[in-house]
Simulated scan of single mutants.
Amino acid sequence: MTRPLGATGLHVSPITFGAMRIAGDRPDGASSALLQALERGITSIDTARNYGDSEAVIARTLRAWRGPRPLIATKVKPRDISNWRFYVPMDVQFTPGSIVTSVEESLRTLGVDCLDLVQLHQWYYRWSHETAWLETLHALREAGKVRHIGVSAQDHEHDGVLKLVDDCRVDAVQVVLNAFESRPLVSVVPLADERGVGVIARCVFDHSGALAGAATRETLARDVKLAHASPEVVAEYLRRIDRLREDAREHGMDLVELSIRFGLTHPGVSTLAISLADAGQVDAALAAAARGPLPETLFDRVCREHVWVKNFYYFSRATVDGNAPV
């Protein structure tokens, strides 16, 4: 079971191995989790130049892998990796030279001749009228070093990529999509489906991973993004998770299954990039994906009653007031 990556002609597994936290835990430095994922049918990997030694671990793992080569998607490293939230001119983050350098380093580190998908690892709407970045990636594609081009949207700023999608300037976009952040399903996802642009969904279990089902006050207290959150914010977060868990239970599923099936319900979503730490998580994710879309009534309920507009990067000591952003 695979899904098309837009109009690229590529088909990917519904679950992509998200390699942000990949660990080389074998004696040869390879990742047991990635090998297990490949053995069980996952056909795509999502990484980034900015993810520490992720690309190197992937390279060592693929040398140990004897099956078909998976699709590799990576991201161009921004010049200022400390700024992920506030607008800057494009040439502060990406220049033709920095893009080429990042791509060349990815090729060398991953040990491949061509990258299947290269994404800018940041995007602001005001960059939509810039051309140098795209011309640079086109030149790399013509040189046989890049197959397809994409961007990764800022967290919760999926609408920032709408013009790129509408103009078909990229082959794929990556956005946050989960039960609390379903707004892309009424904007970028259906538009991408119409335009033949692939959609990679991330943070399917929310930024903290809380929608994987194990969130407590203690685990949330250790989350760096919630370091400044008030007790009221944490309590509200747990309350909303419990409400969603109850809806899942009423339909005979847990939060992992609900989250994955929710992310895959719209056909415009190509794949879900999920960090998978072991064989059990790989099997659970694939089993959930195999069960298909959510029932229409549950999908509609999640979209209407569980959306929670928030951004962990902006959490403060303020209290929560209903559904207001904090």
Rank of each mutant, 00 (worst) to 15 (best):
L35Q: 03
A19H: 09
S32W: 03
S32D: 07
V12Q: 06
R21C: 13
L35E: 05
A23Y: 06
S32T: 15
F17M: 08
S13K: 00
D25R: 11
A23T: 15
F17I: 09
T16N: 11
S32E: 11
I15L: 11
A23S: 15
I22V: 15
R21W: 11
H11R: 11
A19R: 07
S13Y: 00
D28H: 04
R21M: 13
P27M: 00
A23W: 07
A23I: 15
S31Q: 08
P27G: 02
T16D: 06
A37M: 04
A33P: 03
I15W: 11
S13W: 05
G18N: 09
R21V: 14
A30M: 06
G29F: 07
D28C: 01
L38E: 02
A30L: 06
G29Q: 05
P27A: 00
M20C: 08
I22C: 15
A19P: 09
G24T: 14
P14W: 07
D28A: 00
G18V: 10
R40C: 09
M20V: 12
G24H: 11
Q36R: 06
R26D: 07
S13H: 05
E39S: 12
R26W: 08
M20T: 12
G29S: 07
S31D: 12
L34I: 03
T16P: 10
D28P: 10
M20K: 13
R40F: 06
V12A: 03
F17E: 09
G29R: 05
D25E: 13
M20Q: 13
A33F: 05
